[in-house]
Design a protein around this nucleic acid. Structure first.
Ligand SMILES: Nc1ccn([C@H]2C[C@H](O)[C@@H](COP(=O)(O)OP(=O)(O)OP(=O)(O)O)O2)c(=O)n1
Ligand SMILES: [Mg+2]
Ligand SMILES: [Mg+2]
Length: 1226
DNA sequence: ATCCTCCCCTAC
DNA sequence: TAAGGTAGGGGAGGAT
């Protein structure tokens, strides 16, 4: 409500300016915010006041309220809260000791935060200022080292590296003997056998008793912690009821605790048939498939003896020929099971949340208590089941206890099974077996490995039983997965007793072991759990203990640090958290990005602000299939996409949401139609995606299918190369209700509304111009409620007035085959939804050439083609459609005739001559060279020598599954994808592209040149323009450029190659780059010693390239200048020059700037090709070798330190190679 | 600066 | 045989 909004804040419920009541005030404030969010409808987000104008806060450490809320309040009053420590931060908000203070007391190297100079003030400052309606002097709220309102807070975990030997010893004791206190715990366990039914007061007493204990903080619990709790294992009969803490009398209290008894009605049918843990399988007429006990799918009908690998293009048990593939697949997919768990859980969680709210309201206990929980140090418990999928099965197979067991699909009789292990127990892990490993490999490591099959129904039951207990044990439960959650414990809880109790209850209810960890934040809780595994718990509250533990903890153990991050750090010699302490924040941020760097900086010190949040609303809903996807014809693809759309639509319906944004994803094999190592797997793929803003919200399968098919067509992937497909919907609206579903803040809301308006405006105009009257009218319809669209007229919208244009809509897309329900598809949804009128581009180059090309170059070409086609959309639409159809048809015919060879045996004759001529010369060269090389590069790329003629060789190397990594050279994949992105945007708005002739003519180019340049991918265009700018006084056209001969490539290298490393940013976009270089070079050598380089990160320094843009610009400029158009032949390569270049390239690689290295190599290659001296070829080859070698070493280092080799994504190092291959040809 | 798109990374 | 999904966070680069 606007009135409420603009009015100054009401006085806080409690009058103390900065007493301890900030939390209470915030509570009130938050309620108001929520109310506003619900009431307002699109009005502008005007600040209430300007109290904090010009102030930028960074919230560091614990705050009494969620950061988001604090941010909202500050924002409302004109201030800003930075997401991380940026240079514009003016104040640090913190309830506790600031870094700066600690720095004085701790080892100095631990406290080098960038903000140490900044004033650190207590959050009460915010309250007090708002209350008084003016900006109070922050100095009055300085948090000095002495004391503050809330005592030593969570920041006690701060850089407190205790060099103290005692603590160190204590910590080391944690690692080793943690598990031998079984007996002590067993005693405790029996004590709790009663509490299972015991009245609440029992537990209360227990917790109260332990409060004093909690205060010990640092001195904590070091010794006796993790129990093995064999006593708990007695499982068997459990008292049906269990304790329900007074603060959490869940409604669920009535539910039984043995999961067998609490199975929800919709999950398992009594008869044991119908494996339907997935809610998705219910609505559809799914043929009754498997008997439940066996999760082994039958439907092998067509599959039979056929091996997809043999057939090359057509897998028979794959997506072809099996209309029920999707359903069967999802029913058997473990990843689908765990991936969709949260969605399935949502109802349960929401129910609990509701009940809990109600309970709290009834209690109406002093809000102060709840606030106290927040304002004091938090107690967070993390719980995770041990080797979950195994445990849930082994509990009924006692004979397997203690033996190595894994869970997977295949039995792996031959030791060749490519079935993936989902989980394995600890005996199996001892032999090196890991989740994600192929069964065959696992059996090699562990010959006696017993492989069990999934039983998703059991997992579902156990998980629910587990959550049931969580909900009873804690007020706030944040679900992580089907076997894992965070619990926020009430203040005063005895953490160890709580952990023990939770684990015991879990064991009793599920007969599965769980481990638990307790910490002051989620990170430490989680680390504690990991440390406690298996079947134990660990309480880590002391700052000293935490730091001691962290010091030698591999960074990889930090949640959020995966393979790539670990490798980046490893490359810099950073393996442990302790080593990370040495690195300052700006340095980390410059390596890893702002947020990631910040996260790491804090995490390695045990800092973690994230609040435990109950359950966040989903922001997107999707479905994808990347296994068994094999097509030979486009029709099959369309059928499949259609079914996938139905699946997604069901999920939307289930979630009761509609979506305004659609993303279509496709995996394209990098190996051509060959089969990967994993049976029916997707192998190594390029991951392509395209997304569209929808004109109106939808959840209709017809809409989704129609839009998806359009995007599919755009992506232009030959059917036989498709290895995976996915549809994801986002920008969700709660069905039948206005408003944003998620709990975003006011700012986000505004952004959302803003976006809405823009999109519908564009969409409407576009369609009107296309003459789609119906579409336009629907646009109006959807805009009717204005900003917030009330969804509900879905059916009407789909079937209203579609006849007028349905034919036209069908026209452009004949040949589509739709499954049942195609009335919907033919409905009007399509045009209504797509806001940009994207047409599949006409095929001008025989597309069969593309797979032949090296990946980066191919992407470039594809971008180029797309751009061209979009350009041609100015033609009448019918014509467009006609052209496209025709060429598509031809392609398909070719594919049918010669499917597997098509992509491998390419000749120039297959390239459309006209088109080829129209290509930029560089691209022509590259196409020619690539064609000559045929598949050679592909073999090399994989490091595999193979015979490509048959097309059936297994190309797969390790890491094939790796998420694409389609191009490891962002300089290419990014820079080249963007032009098209821009074009699409421009098309939407019917604008003339910014780079067409106008801009170019200003540079003195001929119209032809301009037209030519306009066709170039932006990466090439940029570089070309740089060259042109340099030589523009000659006013020559592009055509004459080739006649110019070049200087020696490195003639100027003595002044430049080093430059970009620490060269200063190119002030303008390459206007006067020459000056830049000269200045740089001179300054660089003496003013910035290499060892000092870390110092300058994050600071705007004249001779420091902090910004990658600057580096790239400088490079391009340099190469453009050096590598073109001077007269005189190039001189032979000079060793010194080559060394300089090599050194610089390696620097780039070691700095994780692969894309820059790639750009440099590319330009270098081009120059080598253009200049006359053959002597440069081997020189180029040598440099390439250097680069390749470094990349290989990087690979090896990965292998060496990896713990889960089988899961490691493979890095694509092919990007630099094609340049070398190009060279070979010439 | 901020938004948008197209990725990549991460976790289970 | 085999079922390599799902969702969120975040970064790069372009548009505005
Ligand atoms: N790559 C993976 C990882 C996990 N899971 C499934 C099986 C696991 O049992 C379950 C829980 O994952 P965890 O990471 O918790 O692993 P476990 O519970 O199996 O072992 P741990 O004792 O380490 O928790 O998720 C899977 O299918 N594939
Ligand atoms: Mg687990
Ligand atoms: Mg887990």
């Amino acid at each position: 409500m606007s009135s409420a909004k603009k009015r100054p804040l009401p006085p806080p419920p409690v009058g103390e300016p900065h007493g301890g009541d900030f939390g209470v005030y915030m509570q009130h404030k938050i309620q108001r915010l929520h109310a506003q969010l619900n009431e307002r409808s699109g009005e502008e987000d005007v600040p209430i006041s300007r109290i904090f104008e010009g102030m930028v806060f960074f919230i560091n450490g614990f705050t009494p309220v969620p950061v988001e809320e604090l941010r909202a309040v500050v924002h409302e009053h004109g201030g800003h809260v930075a997401a991380y420590e940026t240079s514009n931060v003016t104040h640090i908000l913190c309830t506790n000791l600031p870094h700066a203070k600690l720095k004085q007391r701790r080892a100095q190297k631990l406290a080098r935060g960038a903000h140490q100079q900044l004033p650190v003030i207590h959050p009460d400052y915010i309250l007090a200022s708002i209350e008084q309606g003016r900006r109070l002097p922050p100095a009055d709220f300085l948090v000095d080292g002495v004391k503050n309102h809330h005592g030593q807070g969570i920041q006690a975990f701060m850089p407190g590296r205790c060099g103290d030997e005692g603590a160190r010893r204590a910590a080391s004791a944690l690692h080793g003997p943690a598990l031998d206190l079984t007996t002590a715990l067993a005693t405790e366990g029996t004590a709790f056998a009663v509490p299972a039914d015991a009245p609440v007061s029992n537990d209360d007493a227990d917790w109260n008793a332990s409060e004093a204990h909690q205060e010990l903080e640092c001195a904590t619990v070091l010794g006796p912690v993790s129990p093995a709790a064999t006593a708990v294992e007695e499982t068997s009969q459990t008292p049906p009821r269990s304790p329900s803490p007074s603060f959490s009398p869940g409604p669920s209290a009535a539910l039984p605790h043995r999961e067998e008894r609490m199975t929800p009605p919709y999950h398992t049918l009594p008869g044991g048939g119908k494996a339907s843990w997935s809610p998705l399988s219910s609505p559809l007429p799914s043929p009754s498939t498997t008997p439940s006990s066996r999760s082994r799918p039958t439907g092998r009908r067509a599959g039979g003896g056929q091996n997809a690998a043999g057939s090359g293009t057509g897998g028979l048990l794959s997506t072809k020929e099996d209309p029920d593939f999707i359903k069967k697949y999802f029913k058997s997919s473990r990843l689908h099971f765990i991936g969709s768990f949260r969605a399935r859980m949502q109802d349960l969680a929401a129910e609990h949340a509701r009940a809990r709210r109600a309970a709290r309201a009834v209690q109406s206990s002093e809000a102060g208590e709840s606030d106290m929980r927040h304002s004091q140090r938090r107690l967070i418990m993390h719980v995770d089941m041990d080797c979950y999928f195994v445990s849930a099965l082994v509990r009924d197979r006692p004979e397997l206890a203690g033996k190595p067991v894994a869970v997977a699909h295949g039995e792996g009789q031959e030791r060749h099974s490519s079935s993936e292990i989902s989980s394995c127990n600890y005996p199996a892990r001892a032999t090196g077996v890991r989740a994600g490993m192929f069964v065959g490999e696992a059996q090699r490591l562990c010959p006696g490995l017993k492989v069990l099959h999934y039983d998703f129904e059991v997992y579902e039951r156990v998980s629910r039983a587990m959550y049931q207990i969580f909900f009873e044990e804690a007020e706030v439960v944040q679900p992580v997965s089907c076997d894992e959650a965070y619990l926020e414990l009430a203040a005063g809880t005895d953490p160890e007793a709580a952990a023990r109790r939770v684990r015991r209850r879990l064991m009793e209810a599920t007969r599965c072991p769980a481990s638990a960890g307790v910490g002051r934040n989620m990170l430490l809780a989680r680390l504690a759990t990991k440390h406690a595994k298996p079947n134990g718990h660990h309480v880590m509250l002391g700052a000293e203990e935490s730091m001691v533990y962290l010091e030698n903890l591999p960074v990889r153990e930090i949640p959020g640090v995966g393979w790539e991050l670990d490798a980046k750090l490893e490359r810099r010699g950073l393996r442990t958290c302790g080593q990370l302490w040495e690195v300052r924040l700006p340095q980390l941020q410059s390596w890893l990005g702002a947020k990631t760097g910040s996260m790491l900086y804090r995490a390695c010190r045990g800092q973690d602000d994230r609040p435990v949040v109950p359950q966040t609303t989903r922001k997107s809903v999707g479905a994808e299939v990347n296994w068994g996807v094999r097509f030979s014809q486009g029709e099959q693809v369309e059928v499949f996409v259609d079914r996938l759309a139905v699946e997604v639509a069901q999920r939307l319906a289930q979630a009761k949401v509609q979506a305004r944004h659609l993303t279509f994803k496709i995996k394209r094999s990098q190996y051509g139609p060959n089969e990967p190592e994993k049976l029916l797997g997707c192998g190594r793929c390029d991951n392509l995606s395209r997304s569209v803003a929808l004109a109106r919200p939808t959840n209709g399968p017809a809409d989704i299918a129609a839009v998806s098919l359009r995007l599919l067509a755009q992506l232009q992937v030959p059917p036989d190369l498709i290895r995976g497909l996915g549809i994801q919907l986002s920008n969700l609206l709660v069905d039948g209700q206005a408003g944003v579903p998620d709990k975003k803040g006011a700012g986000s809301m505004q952004a959302w509304l803003q976006k809405t308006d823009d999109l519908s405006g564009v969409g409407s105009r576009g369609f009107e111009e296309d003459g789609c009257a119906v579409s336009a009218s629907k646009q109006g319809q959807s805009k009717e409620p204005h900003d917030l669209v009330v969804v509900g007229g879905e059916e009407e919208a789909e079937h209203g007035g579609h006849d007028a244009w349905r034919i036209e809509e069908k026209g452009p897309c004949p040949g589509r085959i739709f499954a049942p329900g195609c009335e919907e598809l033919e409905g009007d949804g399509l045009s209504t939804l797509v806001q940009e009128y994207d047409l599949p581009p006409p095929s001008q180059i025989d597309l069969s050439v593309l797979p032949e090309l090296p990946s980066p170059m191919r992407l470039e070409l594809e971008q180029h083609l797309r751009q061209q086609k979009e350009r041609q959309q100015s033609k009448p639409i019918e014509q467009q459609h006609g052209e496209r159809r025709q060429s598509e048809g031809e392609e398909k015919r070719q594919d049918d005739a010669d499917s597997s060879l098509q992509h491998w045996d390419v000749s120039m004759s297959q390239i459309d001559e006209t088109t080829f001529q129209a290509l930029p010369r560089e691209l022509q060269d590259e196409v020619r060279a690539a064609v000559r090389r045929k598949s050679f590069n592909m073999c090399r790329r994989n490091g595999v020598h193979l015979d490509t003629a048959g097309g059936s060789t297994n190309h797969d190397a390790r890491g094939e599954r790796a998420k694409g990594k389609a191009s490891n050279a962002p300089g290419l994949s990014r820079a080249t994808h963007s032009p098209s992105q821009r074009d699409r945007r421009a098309m939407r708005q019917m604008k003339i592209p910014a780079y067409d002739s106008n801009g170019l003519q200003l540079r003195g180019l001929s119209v032809q040149d301009a037209a030519f340049l306009a066709q170039l991918p932006v990466s090439l265009r940029t570089e070309t323009l740089a060259e042109l700018d340099r030589h523009k006084r000659t006013n020559v056209g592009l055509g004459s450029k080739e006649e110019d001969s070049n200087d020696s490539f490195l003639s100027s290298s003595s002044r430049s190659p080093r430059v970009p490393t620490r060269g200063h940013p190119c002030p303008t976009s390459g206007r006067h780059p020459r000056t830049v270089f000269e200045v740089e070079d001179e300054e660089n050598d003496r003013s910035v010693p290499p060892t000092e380089s870390p110092e300058v990160y994050g600071r705007p320094r004249l001779f420091v390239c902090e910004d990658i843009h600057d580096v790239r610009r400088a490079l391009i400029d340099w190469l453009g200048r050096v590598g073109t158009v001077e007269e005189g032949a190039a001189s032979p390569p000079a060793t010194a020059h080559m060394q300089l270049l090599s050194v610089y390239l390696l620097e780039l690689l070691d700095d994780d700037r692969d894309s820059d290295a790639w750009t440099l190599m590319r330009s270098f290659r081009r120059w080598v090709m253009q200049q006359g001296h053959q002597s440069w070829f081997p020189a180029y080859g040598a440099i390439l070798k250097v680069v390749e070698t470094r990349l290989s070493e990087r690979e090896l280092r990965y292998e060496y330190c990896q713990k889960e080799p089988f899961k490691r994504p493979a890095r694509a190092m092919s990007n630099l190679k094609w340049g070398g291959l190009q060279l070979n040809v010439s």
